[in-house]
Design a protein around this nucleic acid. Structure first.
Length: 772
RNA sequence: GCCGGGAUGGAGAAAUCUGGUAAACUCGAUGGUCUCAAACACCAUUGCCUGAAAGGGCUUGCGGGUUCGAAUCCCGCUCCCGGCACCA
């Protein structure tokens, strides 16, 4: 069109001007009580470990597009933001720079906020909170005490995951393939007394309520199912000479009970001490345990490693055959799953088989496959498939599809055992031997023992005068704050000491989305009335890497809050959108690798709109995106030129004089209108499906059509105005700045972001009939 | 081993739910207009084979099936990605 391009869209000037206005007026503030259809939209609040990175830009672009589209569709929208400001990475970064974690955190939050404003994200800035402020974390302490009162927060000694580098324990979910989630150091087991939240009480509900999660991908639900790991089976009693209580084992195959030829107890099990006592094998047990304890989780769980065991010298009675079978200790049996003891059926379990061959224990076949005859002496691997029972008394001939149920019923009738369910999920270990977190509101008194801090003494504030560097193993930095540690017992008034561990920061994020709804409340974490008005979250967006961390903890705490009457929905986030990971050269962007594209550089060279649109156009939101090698420059090839093209079209139309025949329609005008209305129809459908890349494609076609119309001499201002105004409305959720500027340029006094979504004429939008 | 997801041009992708012209849109590439020149912008070509062209033939990981018609639905494979894994 205008080859000379005397003028160009000055995105820097336009974006700065509107940003200033939006920051000054907070136009997207939401009321506490919506009066019409509502949408509560939450994006996972960021962790301030530096400035925003492209992953944030991606998810905020997606999220903000949904928010702006929802408003134009007539919903009342609440779109808040806050910061997940406590935690280990900030603390480590601060220690490295020899400054207080608070200073470091607040600096980063200021940077984050400036970048969010520059990106034009339509947050309600009146509802901001930081989890590291006492006004927030005192409600973490409240939550802890609520759980404590109901027996769902408890302290126990257990073999905990210990990161030797970060010098703290970690929850199971924070150990990725045997390594620390944060620093990748191999984790070791350490026997410590720690605080736990009893998430296992909610295991069934966490699984069963997944039916409600219709807006979650199979991928994430599958991860959670695997993580929770429910299995059905039976517990069976084995009696032992000289002991009143029988020993229980859990098995998923009670139908193989007749083939149990030995019995194994986890080496750490207290029962091991009992069995060994008086046999003269105490030192051997000690050595064996030490050998097992030295292994990292990676070594211990390696399938290649040969299983090691130790005979106790004791026997238990197989309850169905009446025969004594030897009791062993072995490193392949886990202390914290089932009962910590198993019946070993080497013929039909591969692990038991390998152990039996190593230690020359008998292998007895009790399931015969249909087409061959197994022999325990000659078989080379366990047979775990289907077949019919043999060597099993009255059950001989029973087939596998009914045998488990029949045997379980019989065991119950004989009083030998009962049906049982087990989970892979472990209780959530929330103690951390670190400084930058919520103090656990417990006091230890010599007289009264463990005493919860009464509500009127909350918050237990995090002291500032502390040596916050990690201390020797198992000692928290807060132990160095002597004045803070030593308090009067809340119950008897005698000298006592505070708990010095802090809470896992996943406690903060497990309920934060409620706090937005009542951010200034000083007497409760939130008002259930206000909560009811906005909950549940209609759309949650964020990274899929939290599948078994945040996303499982938060579902648990939501259910708990429902149980105590604070909130009404069993699930906090019925719909979840996980954006794809952004990489460059197939690797995660990182400064040390030198493959980082900085959002700030993109703002300066191409503007926020072009960056947002680039993120949305790159592919479906959930798809991973490998950023081209040329870096920020690729925005200058893809979306920045197209926005200039949109701008020129708008300017062209804005400059056209009003003519008397603007309302007349020839064939070319009709064709363009039909194209426009089809575009509105399809783009609207695509917005509903979050298919942003195809919306952009469709709008590009529309712009191409308009240019073509102009190129062949089309000059009907009426039709062009309809096209351009609709185009701006359809584009407004994705590129808020340019659309606002040009909307005003076309003579409107009100913000484009307050307009209603354009409607299409169904007659015009109908596809032309195709004759087959 | 168990569970889940996926495979379409040189690249990102679209069409898959709801079977109907496969490859929209964009990048890259090639040629052109403009320019002293370059950049920008604009125009054209661009799945593969064949052909001077018109045209013809083939094509959605592989093999079958259903159907007038299959990228799409069904059955059986292969490969890739992700998760879990000594969980009894």
């Amino acid at each position: 069109m205008d080859r000379q391009r005397e003028r160009e869209y000055d995105f820097t000037e336009v974006e700065e001007r509107w940003k200033k206005e939006w920051v000054a007026t907070n136009p997207w503030a939401a009321p506490d009580f919506p009066t019409g259809p509502k949408r509560y939209l939450v994006t996972m609040f960021p962790y301030p470990s530096g400035d925003l990175h492209m992953g944030h830009v991606e998810v905020f672009s997606i999220h903000d597009t949904i928010a702006r589209y929802s408003r134009m569709q007539g919903f009342e929208v609440l779109n808040p933001i806050g910061w997940d400001a406590f935690g280990l990475p900030a603390e480590n970064a601060a220690i490295k720079r020899n400054i207080n974690p608070k200073t470091w955190t607040y600096d980063n939050i200021a940077k984050h906020r400036a970048s969010m404003e520059r990106l034009g994200i339509s947050f309600d800035w009146d509802r901001v909170f930081l989890t590291c402020e006492p006004t927030f974390y005192r409600w973490n302490q409240w939550l802890f005490l609520q759980l404590y009162e109901r027996g769902l927060a408890y302290r126990k000694a257990a073999a905990a995951n210990w990161c030797p580098k970060d010098k703290t324990v970690l929850a199971n979910e924070q150990v990725i393939a045997g390594r620390c989630e944060l620093c990748d150091t191999p984790v070791v087991k350490k026997w410590l007394t720690q605080w736990f939240f009893k998430i296992t009480d909610y295991a069934d509900r966490l699984l069963d309520d997944m039916e409600i999660l219709t807006g979650w991908t199979e991928r994430i639900k599958n991860l959670q199912r695997n993580w929770i790991g429910r299995s059905y089976g039976a517990e069976v009693n084995f009696s032992i000479e000289g002991r009143v209580e029988p020993i229980r084992v859990y098995t998923t195959r009670p139908d193989t009970l007749w083939g149990a030829t030995f019995f194994v107890v986890a080496p750490e099990h207290p029962l091991a001490d009992e069995l060994i006592a008086g046999t003269g094998k105490e030192s051997e047990l000690e050595a064996f345990r030490e050998q097992v304890g030295r292994l990292t989780e990676i070594d211990r769980t390696s399938t290649e490693r040969e299983k090691k065991g130790m005979f106790t010298g004791k026997h238990v009675i197989n309850p169905v055959t009446g025969e004594p079978i030897p009791v062993w200790l072995a490193d392949y049996v886990l202390m914290d799953y089932g009962t910590g003891a198993i019946m070993a059926v080497p013929a039909h379990d591969q692990r038991d088989f390998e152990f039996a061959r190593s230690y020359d224990l008998p292998v007895k076949v009790v399931i015969q496959p249909p087409n061959e005859t197994l022999d325990g002496d000659t078989m080379t691997e366990a047979y775990a498939g289907e077949g019919s029972m043999v060597n099993s008394g009255e059950f001989d001939g029973t087939s596998t599809d009914v045998s488990v149920e029949k045997v379980t019923q019989w065991l119950e009738a004989q009083n030998l055992g009962s049906a049982a369910t087990n989970f892979r999920l472990r209780d959530w270990l929330i103690s951390r031997q670190r400084y930058w977190g919520t103090p656990i509101p417990i006091v230890y008194c010599d007289e009264c023992g463990e005493v919860p801090v009464p509500d009127d003494q909350l918050p237990v504030e995090l002291p500032e005068q502390v040596d916050f560097t990690p201390q020797d193993e198992g000692v928290a930095p807060l132990a160095t704050a002597h004045e803070w540690v030593n308090v009067a017992c809340p119950r008897c008034g005698k000298p006592a000491k505070r708990e010095t561990d802090t809470m896992d920061t996943f406690v903060d994020s497990s309920w934060y989305y409620h706090r937005y709804l009542d951010v200034h409340n000083e007497s409760a974490p939130f008002d259930p009335e206000k909560d009811r008005a906005w909950m549940p979250v209609d759309q949650y967006t964020g990274g899929g890497e939290h599948a078994v961390l945040h996303l499982i903890y938060t579902r648990f705490i939501q259910k708990f809050l429902m149980d105590i009457g604070m909130t009404e929905d069993p699930e906090p986030f019925p719909a979840l959108l996980n954006q794809g990971v952004i990489t460059m050269g197939g690797k995660r962007m990182s400064k040390s690798r030198g493959n980082v594209v900085e959002p700030v550089e993109a703002f300066e060279r191409y503007g926020a709109d072009a960056l947002r649109l680039y993120m949305l156009f790159s592919g479906p939101p959930e798809a991973p995106f490998d950023w081209p090698d040329e870096g920020v420059r690729s925005i200058g090839r893809v979306t920045a030129p197209w926005l200039q093209r949109v701008w020129r079209l708008c300017e062209d139309v804005a400059d056209m004089p009003v003519a008397p025949d603007d309302a007349t329609r020839g064939p070319a005008e009709l064709a363009l209108r039909k194209f426009l209305h089809r575009t509105i129809k399809v783009a609207t459908r695509d917005y509903e499906n979050f298919s942003f890349n195809t919306i952009v494609a469709r709008l590009q076609e529309l712009v191409n059509e308009a240019y073509r119309y102009r190129a062949v001499g089309g000059n009907n201002r009426g039709i062009l105005l309809e096209v351009v105004e609709s185009l701006l409305l359809l584009l407004a959720p994705m590129t808020p700045y340019l659309t606002e500027e040009e909307w005003r340029r076309l003579g409107h006094d009100e913000s484009i972001h307050d307009q209603s979504w354009p409607e299409y004429d169904p007659t015009l939008a109908a596809e032309d009939e195709v004759t087959l």
